[in-house]
Design a protein around this nucleic acid. Sequence first.
DNA 1: ACTGAATGTTGACGCTGACAACTTCATATT
DNA 2: AATATGAAGTTGTCAGCGTCAACATTCAGT
Lengths: 236, 236
Amino acid sequence: MGGNSEVCRAMPRPQPHERPYHHGDLRRVIVEAALEILRETQSLEFSLRELARRADVSHNAPYKHFADKRELLEAVSAEGFEMLTKRMANEIASFRSPREQLFALLRAYIDHGVENPALYSLMFGGYLTGPNHGRPAIELAAAEKTKVLLAGVIIAGGVGRAVPHTSRNERKIAGAVLACWSLVHGLTLLLADGLVGPNEKSGALADSLVQGLLNGLAAELPVLPPGTWVGPQIPD
Amino acid sequence: MGGNSEVCRAMPRPQPHERPYHHGDLRRVIVEAALEILRETQSLEFSLRELARRADVSHNAPYKHFADKRELLEAVSAEGFEMLTKRMANEIASFRSPREQLFALLRAYIDHGVENPALYSLMFGGYLTGPNHGRPAIELAAAEKTKVLLAGVIIAGGVGRAVPHTSRNERKIAGAVLACWSLVHGLTLLLADGLVGPNEKSGALADSLVQGLLNGLAAELPVLPPGTWVGPQIPD
DNA sequence: ACTGAATGTTGACGCTGACAACTTCATATT
DNA sequence: AATATGAAGTTGTCAGCGTCAACATTCAGT
């Protein structure tokens, strides 16, 4: 499945028998090689040197573009967020009603995770959020775009009808968005991890789950507590 | 926080100045050392050799108990599931009403993840579920216990009232349990990953989210499709 | 034409996971 | 009691890894 050399196709490469000393676009080629390995092996345990080999470059060339391995992985993760955002944006473009858009978007989200479990692990598995380093800037920026798109469609497609988007309702809306996101995120990971299914069709599964959640949000919106309210004193 | 030697306390060790040639309980000591490192560094990138050093043992001793590093990590993950199950069981023992038990259990689940993000990553982050290996047996066994406990309490505490536990309702119930689990799982990961909060109190957050979900489940239960039904043909 | 910054290369270092061969010791059988 | 057996721990070794330092090549601006 897929040859292991000839990765360098970003540059026309005028003379095939001798690569020019400078690669031209090594950074991107390396990130793409990483994505390729992730896709092929579904494992995060590849080496920087292997990437260099795939790019037909010395083992130290990547260090001119990434300070260390973590920074490379951050770039790959960011690329994953870009792919996810693009995919969701594409999906929702095919539908007109906000409701349909919402479901299409959530399905795209889940599919992205199920089809690329290793990449999804990298994005959300907490490899990169060590104790010292919070989420790196490059990743945060990419993740933020994803989040904004997600929130917008959720509000338009499911929550907006029940709760108009006024500033008074901000907490409620934030809670609803968080609930949706958590649900889909958790389901994606359970599916990607093989803890659920894959006997069930994930798309339909997601739809019905989100449907249930939206019903709940409409019935009685969760109120994000200002800090005091704690759960189970609900009439039993 | 915590000395780095004197780990060996499982065996009485008659002469403190000279360890007996055979350690006595090395396997457990190594797993505990791994948990300790995870807690201290919140990173999965520790070495087998470091564990051996902590256990005051040669760098190859662990190989008498684990075939390779992966098998060691599997054992650690399994231990994580045991801890989680124990913690949840403890929590629910403090409450009588199924509803209270449900919320207590979910809070325990979330807290476990938020307090030990690296361990939670190991358990659910897909490190161990490569392409070749599905979830290892030891981990599956431990995870299954967790799942059973979770499902039982969810059914008793939230779903049982709306949907009696008959065989006809099996799909509905499974869907409701999956929805709950996904929601809490996703929320836990978002919190552990720092993508949400921690400005909000996670316990209260979870309660309100689950509350919303349960309302939804009660209002109109999601029907897990037999394979055909696909989402968004809901009246818009 | 020259200089400096990017970019790519070579060589080295310590650490790691893993394997093989050896040592110690507890136990089971004779 | 003597001894064979094998589990548990040790030492030695190996290739591969991430990273650093020093050097080579090319491009861009003067």
